[in-house]
Simulated scan of single mutants.
Amino acid sequence: MSANPSGFSVEPIDYGTGLPELRSVRETVFVQEQNVPIAEEWDELDPQCLHVIARDPGGRPIGTGRLTPERKVGRMAVLREWRGKGVGDAMLAALIESARRRGWRELSLNSQVSASAFYIRHGFVPYGERFWEAGIEHQAMRRMLGGATAIEDREAAIAATVAVILGARRYLWIYSRELDPGLFDAAPVLEAWRRYGTSGHGGEARFLLQDAEAVQRAHAPLLGLAQRLPSLFQFREVDDPADRAYPSAFIANDTGGYYFRTLGHRFDGETDLDGAGRARQLVESFKPIWERSRPCPEFRALGI
């Protein structure tokens, strides 16, 4: 069992003996709130699944989730009055840890589109086309366990970037050609940068650019935020010809998360929120280039 400062706890629950508690949450959220037909809410997989339940300090069920034999996360539900208090995060963390203990290499899920940002924070990336299930639009998502997840398109690239930014404790290191139009100017990424910049945790995001002039000409949206928080966002432009020839791009944080692209002008690459060794390697390669690169004071006076 795990507990937290809000007083709720999360633990596994036996399906047979715990069915009334599971029903009290799932039918409240899915059937009553979201109008999912009750015949679609309960399926033949339920008795075969690993279920977790969250309880409030008085022992009342407030959240549920499950792992299916197909190695999928599902039926994540939290009662309305407990949303936004970390219950879903704690349940998902418990399910991921259970999958790791079973030696699973990958987890997938079908997220309601409205909840995809929650799963992105936990390292899941979207793949495939959106689809409708029980009258609700969904997005398939996946995450590798104990290894990197492949990034194949822009939507997955945005998800990976957001996860690395929001996963930072304090520090971020970014190597980019020209602030990656289509990625760093995407609305979810800009919102992640805003949250990082206003979190009050201090720290610093260091950007190494290959073409600072192109960034300035494009009036990259991130520069407006950087102007308001100049001590947090630092920019330098590589000078050395060997550094300018570096073909890759990446973002890495101080908690072991990274997203790396072999070719910096493309979105495809790999990401891992638990890749401490690889993240450390990227940061160590970044530091000497940063020291010999040119600061970009012109970004402070753009007047954007």
Rank of each mutant, 00 (worst) to 15 (best):
V52M: 12
M76R: 00
G147I: 01
E97D: 15
H138Q: 09
P57W: 04
D46R: 04
R294E: 06
A54D: 03
A39E: 15
R60L: 06
R80Y: 07
R105I: 11
A90C: 09
G86I: 04
F235Q: 01
I53R: 05
L22C: 12
E106D: 13
V238D: 07
G88N: 00
L229D: 02
R66E: 05
S231R: 14
T198A: 10
D243V: 02
V10H: 08
R66N: 06
E291H: 14
S6P: 00
G86Q: 00
V189D: 07
P230N: 03
E41L: 09
A117G: 07
L229R: 08
E213W: 14
V87A: 02
P221L: 11
A220H: 15
V113Q: 01
R121N: 01
H219G: 03
S111P: 00
D240R: 08
E298T: 11
E291L: 15
S285H: 11
F184G: 02
L19N: 00
G277Y: 05
P12M: 02
F286Y: 11
G84N: 10
H51K: 11
R236K: 09
A242G: 06
S111G: 13
E44P: 07
R130G: 15
L209Q: 01
R261D: 13
G264N: 01
G264S: 07
G147Y: 09
P188K: 03
G103P: 10
R55T: 01
T262S: 12
A93F: 08
V164R: 00
A168M: 09
W173V: 00
A242L: 08
E133C: 03
E40D: 11
G147Q: 07
M144H: 06
R170N: 06
N110H: 15
R194A: 12
Y119M: 02
D46M: 05
F250K: 08
E137G: 10
Q216Y: 15
C49L: 11
F207D: 08
S285V: 03
L225E: 05
A220C: 13
G303R: 13
L67F: 10
D243S: 07
G128N: 01
V125P: 00
A94L: 11
V113I: 11
Q34Y: 14
A214W: 03
I158Y: 03
F286P: 00
R154A: 15
C296L: 04
W132F: 14
L223D: 03
E284Y: 06
G182S: 14
R292P: 08
A205Y: 07
A159P: 08
T28I: 03
L172S: 06
E191R: 12
V215G: 04
L67H: 09
G277N: 13
R100I: 14
P47A: 00
A3V: 13
L67G: 05
